[in-house]
Nucleic acid binder design. Structure first.
Length: 283
DNA sequence: GCTTGCGCCTGAATGC
DNA sequence: TGCATTCAGGCGCAAG
Protein backbone atom coordinates (compact mmCIF):
# COMPACT_ATOMS: atom_id res chain seq x y z
CA UNK A 1 0.00 0.00 0.00
CA UNK A 2 1.17 3.53 -0.47
CA UNK A 3 3.15 4.73 2.49
CA UNK A 4 3.87 8.34 3.28
CA UNK A 5 6.82 8.78 0.87
CA UNK A 6 4.77 7.43 -2.02
CA UNK A 7 1.95 9.84 -1.25
CA UNK A 8 4.40 12.73 -1.37
CA UNK A 9 5.73 11.49 -4.71
CA UNK A 10 2.17 11.48 -6.03
CA UNK A 11 1.61 14.99 -4.73
CA UNK A 12 4.68 16.23 -6.58
CA UNK A 13 3.62 14.42 -9.73
CA UNK A 14 0.22 16.07 -9.69
CA UNK A 15 1.83 19.46 -9.08
CA UNK A 16 3.98 18.93 -12.15
CA UNK A 17 1.33 17.59 -14.50
CA UNK A 18 -2.06 18.92 -13.43
CA UNK A 19 -1.64 22.24 -11.64
CA UNK A 20 -2.83 25.06 -13.87
CA UNK A 21 -5.14 22.77 -15.82
CA UNK A 22 -8.91 23.12 -15.82
CA UNK A 23 -11.29 20.18 -15.36
CA UNK A 24 -13.49 19.92 -18.47
CA UNK A 25 -15.36 16.90 -17.19
CA UNK A 26 -15.40 14.61 -14.18
CA UNK A 27 -16.75 11.05 -14.35
CA UNK A 28 -17.40 8.73 -11.42
CA UNK A 29 -17.41 5.12 -12.57
CA UNK A 30 -17.90 3.64 -9.12
CA UNK A 31 -19.96 5.51 -6.55
CA UNK A 32 -18.23 3.72 -3.69
CA UNK A 33 -15.09 5.73 -4.40
CA UNK A 34 -16.98 8.91 -3.51
CA UNK A 35 -19.05 7.48 -0.66
CA UNK A 36 -17.71 10.09 1.71
CA UNK A 37 -18.96 12.82 -0.61
CA UNK A 38 -22.38 13.35 0.94
CA UNK A 39 -23.92 14.90 -2.18
CA UNK A 40 -23.38 11.71 -4.16
CA UNK A 41 -21.58 11.00 -7.45
CA UNK A 42 -23.54 13.42 -9.66
CA UNK A 43 -23.00 16.32 -7.30
CA UNK A 44 -19.32 15.41 -7.11
CA UNK A 45 -19.01 15.56 -10.90
CA UNK A 46 -21.02 18.75 -11.29
CA UNK A 47 -18.99 20.68 -8.77
CA UNK A 48 -15.70 20.06 -10.56
CA UNK A 49 -16.60 21.05 -14.11
CA UNK A 50 -14.84 24.25 -15.14
CA UNK A 51 -12.67 24.42 -12.04
CA UNK A 52 -8.91 24.92 -12.31
CA UNK A 53 -6.41 23.00 -10.19
CA UNK A 54 -4.48 25.69 -8.36
CA UNK A 55 -2.23 23.52 -6.22
CA UNK A 56 -1.92 20.28 -4.27
CA UNK A 57 -1.76 19.94 -0.50
CA UNK A 58 -0.88 17.01 1.72
CA UNK A 59 -1.47 16.18 5.37
CA UNK A 60 -0.30 12.73 6.38
CA UNK A 61 -1.51 10.36 3.71
CA UNK A 62 -4.29 12.69 2.56
CA UNK A 63 -3.88 14.74 -0.61
CA UNK A 64 -6.11 17.49 -1.88
CA UNK A 65 -6.37 19.40 -5.13
CA UNK A 66 -6.80 23.08 -4.38
CA UNK A 67 -9.42 24.50 -6.71
CA UNK A 68 -9.70 28.07 -7.95
CA UNK A 69 -13.00 28.57 -6.08
CA UNK A 70 -11.40 27.71 -2.73
CA UNK A 71 -12.94 24.23 -2.62
CA UNK A 72 -10.75 21.13 -2.59
CA UNK A 73 -10.85 17.59 -3.93
CA UNK A 74 -9.78 15.58 -0.92
CA UNK A 75 -8.18 12.28 -1.87
CA UNK A 76 -6.99 9.26 0.03
CA UNK A 77 -5.30 6.32 -1.67
CA UNK A 78 -6.33 3.82 0.98
CA UNK A 79 -4.47 0.58 0.48
CA UNK A 80 -4.56 0.17 -3.25
CA UNK A 81 -5.24 3.61 -4.72
CA UNK A 82 -3.31 5.11 -7.61
CA UNK A 83 -3.44 8.53 -9.23
CA UNK A 84 -2.39 8.41 -12.86
CA UNK A 85 -1.90 11.20 -15.38
CA UNK A 86 -2.47 9.67 -18.79
CA UNK A 87 -3.56 10.26 -22.36
CA UNK A 88 -7.31 9.77 -22.83
CA UNK A 89 -6.82 7.09 -25.49
CA UNK A 90 -5.00 4.73 -23.15
CA UNK A 91 -7.12 1.70 -22.29
CA UNK A 92 -9.03 1.96 -19.02
CA UNK A 93 -7.57 0.15 -16.02
CA UNK A 94 -9.57 -2.68 -14.54
CA UNK A 95 -10.25 -0.80 -11.34
CA UNK A 96 -10.66 2.68 -12.79
CA UNK A 97 -13.07 4.51 -10.49
CA UNK A 98 -12.89 8.24 -11.30
CA UNK A 99 -11.62 10.25 -14.28
CA UNK A 100 -11.01 14.00 -14.66
CA UNK A 101 -10.64 15.21 -18.25
CA UNK A 102 -8.17 18.07 -18.09
CA UNK A 103 -7.86 20.86 -20.64
CA UNK A 104 -4.16 20.09 -21.12
CA UNK A 105 -5.00 16.96 -23.08
CA UNK A 106 -4.47 14.59 -20.17
CA UNK A 107 -6.68 12.65 -17.84
CA UNK A 108 -6.24 12.39 -14.12
CA UNK A 109 -7.34 8.86 -13.27
CA UNK A 110 -8.12 7.44 -9.86
CA UNK A 111 -7.64 3.67 -9.85
CA UNK A 112 -8.36 1.70 -6.69
CA UNK A 113 -8.74 -2.04 -6.43
CA UNK A 114 -10.00 -2.37 -2.86
CA UNK A 115 -11.89 0.91 -2.57
CA UNK A 116 -10.49 1.76 0.83
CA UNK A 117 -9.51 5.08 -0.67
CA UNK A 118 -11.70 7.70 -2.27
CA UNK A 119 -12.40 11.33 -3.12
CA UNK A 120 -14.77 14.03 -1.93
CA UNK A 121 -15.27 17.72 -2.62
CA UNK A 122 -14.53 19.73 0.50
CA UNK A 123 -16.32 23.09 0.83
CA UNK A 124 -13.76 25.85 1.20
CA UNK A 125 -11.10 23.24 1.88
CA UNK A 126 -8.34 24.61 -0.35
CA UNK A 127 -6.19 25.63 2.60
CA UNK A 128 -6.92 22.60 4.81
CA UNK A 129 -10.10 20.54 4.36
CA UNK A 130 -12.24 20.51 7.51
CA UNK A 131 -12.66 16.75 7.08
CA UNK A 132 -9.01 16.22 7.97
CA UNK A 133 -8.42 19.03 10.42
CA UNK A 134 -8.00 16.37 13.11
CA UNK A 135 -5.08 14.71 11.29
CA UNK A 136 -1.74 15.56 12.87
CA UNK A 137 1.30 16.66 10.90
CA UNK A 138 3.83 14.03 9.90
CA UNK A 139 7.33 13.90 11.44
CA UNK A 140 8.96 15.28 8.29
CA UNK A 141 6.72 18.35 8.32
CA UNK A 142 8.82 21.39 9.32
CA UNK A 143 5.96 22.48 11.57
CA UNK A 144 5.80 19.15 13.42
CA UNK A 145 6.00 19.95 17.11
CA UNK A 146 8.25 17.43 18.86
CA UNK A 147 7.61 18.80 22.34
CA UNK A 148 3.86 18.69 21.89
CA UNK A 149 4.06 15.15 20.55
CA UNK A 150 6.16 13.97 23.50
CA UNK A 151 3.77 15.64 25.90
CA UNK A 152 0.70 14.04 24.37
CA UNK A 153 2.41 10.63 24.36
CA UNK A 154 3.07 11.03 28.06
CA UNK A 155 -0.64 11.50 28.73
CA UNK A 156 -1.69 8.47 26.74
CA UNK A 157 -2.47 5.17 28.42
CA UNK A 158 -1.58 2.90 25.59
CA UNK A 159 1.30 1.20 23.75
CA UNK A 160 3.70 2.97 21.43
CA UNK A 161 2.57 1.22 18.28
CA UNK A 162 -1.07 2.13 18.80
CA UNK A 163 0.07 5.70 19.31
CA UNK A 164 2.12 5.68 16.11
CA UNK A 165 -0.87 4.41 14.15
CA UNK A 166 -3.13 7.13 15.60
CA UNK A 167 -3.23 9.74 12.86
CA UNK A 168 -4.47 12.34 15.32
CA UNK A 169 -1.19 12.12 17.21
CA UNK A 170 1.27 11.76 14.37
CA UNK A 171 0.34 11.06 10.77
CA UNK A 172 1.66 9.07 7.87
CA UNK A 173 2.66 5.91 9.73
CA UNK A 174 1.04 2.61 8.76
CA UNK A 175 1.55 -0.92 10.03
CA UNK A 176 4.68 -1.63 7.98
CA UNK A 177 6.25 1.73 8.69
CA UNK A 178 5.52 1.30 12.41
CA UNK A 179 7.11 -2.14 12.65
CA UNK A 180 10.22 -1.05 10.77
CA UNK A 181 10.64 2.11 12.82
CA UNK A 182 10.21 0.26 16.12
CA UNK A 183 12.75 -2.36 15.03
CA UNK A 184 15.25 0.37 14.11
CA UNK A 185 14.65 2.15 17.42
CA UNK A 186 14.78 -1.16 19.34
CA UNK A 187 11.42 -0.55 20.96
CA UNK A 188 8.70 -3.11 21.57
CA UNK A 189 5.22 -2.24 20.25
CA UNK A 190 3.66 -2.66 23.69
CA UNK A 191 5.98 -0.17 25.37
CA UNK A 192 3.75 2.08 27.49
CA UNK A 193 3.80 5.58 26.05
CA UNK A 194 3.79 7.23 29.47
CA UNK A 195 7.13 5.59 30.28
CA UNK A 196 8.88 6.83 27.14
CA UNK A 197 11.88 9.01 27.77
CA UNK A 198 12.19 12.16 25.71
CA UNK A 199 15.40 10.84 24.15
CA UNK A 200 13.58 7.70 23.05
CA UNK A 201 10.81 9.73 21.48
CA UNK A 202 13.31 11.87 19.61
CA UNK A 203 15.23 8.81 18.48
CA UNK A 204 12.05 7.22 17.17
CA UNK A 205 11.07 10.35 15.27
CA UNK A 206 14.53 10.57 13.74
CA UNK A 207 14.31 7.00 12.51
CA UNK A 208 10.94 7.71 10.91
CA UNK A 209 12.30 10.83 9.22
CA UNK A 210 15.34 8.94 7.91
CA UNK A 211 13.20 6.26 6.31
CA UNK A 212 10.93 8.88 4.81
CA UNK A 213 13.81 10.91 3.38
CA UNK A 214 15.63 7.99 1.82
CA UNK A 215 12.42 6.55 0.37
CA UNK A 216 11.54 9.92 -1.10
CA UNK A 217 14.90 10.34 -2.77
CA UNK A 218 14.42 6.98 -4.48
CA UNK A 219 10.75 7.46 -5.34
CA UNK A 220 11.23 10.85 -6.88
CA UNK A 221 12.70 9.47 -10.07
CA UNK A 222 10.21 6.69 -10.70
CA UNK A 223 7.53 8.46 -12.71
CA UNK A 224 7.41 10.36 -15.95
CA UNK A 225 4.97 12.76 -17.56
CA UNK A 226 2.34 10.11 -18.17
CA UNK A 227 2.50 8.14 -15.00
CA UNK A 228 2.39 9.53 -11.52
CA UNK A 229 3.79 6.59 -9.66
CA UNK A 230 1.55 5.27 -6.97
CA UNK A 231 2.13 1.65 -7.65
CA UNK A 232 0.67 -0.08 -4.61
CA UNK A 233 3.56 -2.52 -4.49
CA UNK A 234 6.32 0.04 -4.74
CA UNK A 235 8.14 1.71 -1.92
CA UNK A 236 8.44 -0.56 1.02
CA UNK A 237 8.28 -3.72 -0.98
CA UNK A 238 11.21 -2.60 -3.08
CA UNK A 239 13.34 -1.98 -0.06
CA UNK A 240 14.61 -4.65 2.21
CA UNK A 241 12.38 -4.96 5.22
CA UNK A 242 14.07 -5.71 8.51
CA UNK A 243 11.10 -6.82 10.56
CA UNK A 244 7.79 -6.62 8.73
CA UNK A 245 6.87 -9.93 7.10
CA UNK A 246 10.13 -11.55 8.21
CA UNK A 247 8.67 -14.14 10.60
CA UNK A 248 11.19 -16.86 11.38
CA UNK A 249 14.02 -15.15 9.50
CA UNK A 250 17.09 -14.06 11.46
CA UNK A 251 17.23 -10.50 12.72
CA UNK A 252 19.97 -8.74 10.74
CA UNK A 253 21.38 -7.27 13.94
CA UNK A 254 21.53 -10.29 16.21
CA UNK A 255 20.36 -13.37 14.33
CA UNK A 256 17.39 -14.11 16.57
CA UNK A 257 14.38 -15.23 14.55
CA UNK A 258 11.84 -12.46 14.00
CA UNK A 259 8.52 -13.21 15.64
CA UNK A 260 5.01 -12.41 14.56
CA UNK A 261 2.28 -11.46 17.01
CA UNK A 262 -1.37 -10.87 16.30
CA UNK A 263 -2.08 -7.30 17.29
CA UNK A 264 -5.04 -5.03 16.61
CA UNK A 265 -6.43 -7.49 14.09
CA UNK A 266 -3.20 -7.40 12.14
CA UNK A 267 0.38 -8.53 12.54
CA UNK A 268 3.29 -7.09 14.43
CA UNK A 269 6.82 -8.25 13.80
CA UNK A 270 9.60 -7.86 16.34
CA UNK A 271 13.01 -9.21 17.19
CA UNK A 272 12.53 -10.83 20.63
CA UNK A 273 16.14 -10.03 21.58
CA UNK A 274 16.49 -6.45 20.28
CA UNK A 275 12.94 -5.50 21.22
CA UNK A 276 12.11 -7.33 24.45
CA UNK A 277 8.54 -7.09 25.65
CA UNK A 278 8.30 -4.58 28.51
CA UNK A 279 7.10 -5.90 31.85
CA UNK A 280 4.37 -3.31 32.16
CA UNK A 281 3.59 -3.04 28.49
CA UNK A 282 0.33 -1.82 27.07
CA UNK A 283 -1.45 -2.77 23.92
C1' DG B 1 -12.59 12.54 26.74
C1' DC B 2 -10.03 8.69 25.84
C1' DT B 3 -9.37 3.85 24.34
C1' DT B 4 -10.73 -0.17 21.79
C1' DG B 5 -12.66 -2.93 18.14
C1' DC B 6 -15.52 -3.49 13.99
C1' DG B 7 -16.48 -3.08 9.14
C1' DC B 8 -15.62 -1.54 4.78
C1' DC B 9 -13.39 -4.09 0.15
C1' DT B 10 -10.88 -7.28 -3.33
C1' DG B 11 -8.04 -10.86 -4.76
C1' DA B 12 -4.15 -13.86 -3.65
C1' DA B 13 -3.13 -17.67 -0.95
C1' DT B 14 -4.51 -21.53 1.48
C1' DG B 15 -7.50 -25.49 2.94
C1' DC B 16 -10.52 -29.29 2.04
C1' DT C 1 -10.28 -29.12 -10.20
C1' DG C 2 -13.06 -26.16 -7.76
C1' DC C 3 -15.24 -24.12 -4.20
C1' DA C 4 -14.94 -21.92 0.44
C1' DT C 5 -12.30 -19.59 3.81
C1' DT C 6 -8.62 -16.61 5.52
C1' DC C 7 -5.82 -12.75 5.37
C1' DA C 8 -4.01 -8.11 4.42
C1' DG C 9 -4.54 -3.06 5.47
C1' DG C 10 -6.13 2.68 6.75
C1' DC C 11 -9.47 4.95 8.68
C1' DG C 12 -14.21 6.43 10.36
C1' DC C 13 -17.24 5.45 13.64
C1' DA C 14 -19.56 3.49 17.54
C1' DA C 15 -19.26 1.21 21.79
C1' DG C 16 -17.06 0.70 26.13
Amino acid sequence: MPELPEVEVVRRGIVEHAVGAAIDKATVYDGRSVRRHLGGPTDFEDRLVGRTVAGVGRRGKYLWLRLDNDDAVLTHLGMSGQVLIQRPDLVAQKHLRIVFDLDNGRQLRFVDQRIFGGMLVSDGGADLPAEIAHIARDPSDPAFDVDLFAERLKRRRTGIKRALLDQGLVSGIGNIYADEALWLAKLHYARATDTMRKSEVIGLLNVIRDVFTSALSQGGTSFDALYVNVNGESGYFDRSLEAYGQEGLPCSRCGTPIRRDSFMNRSSYTCPACQPRPRNGRW
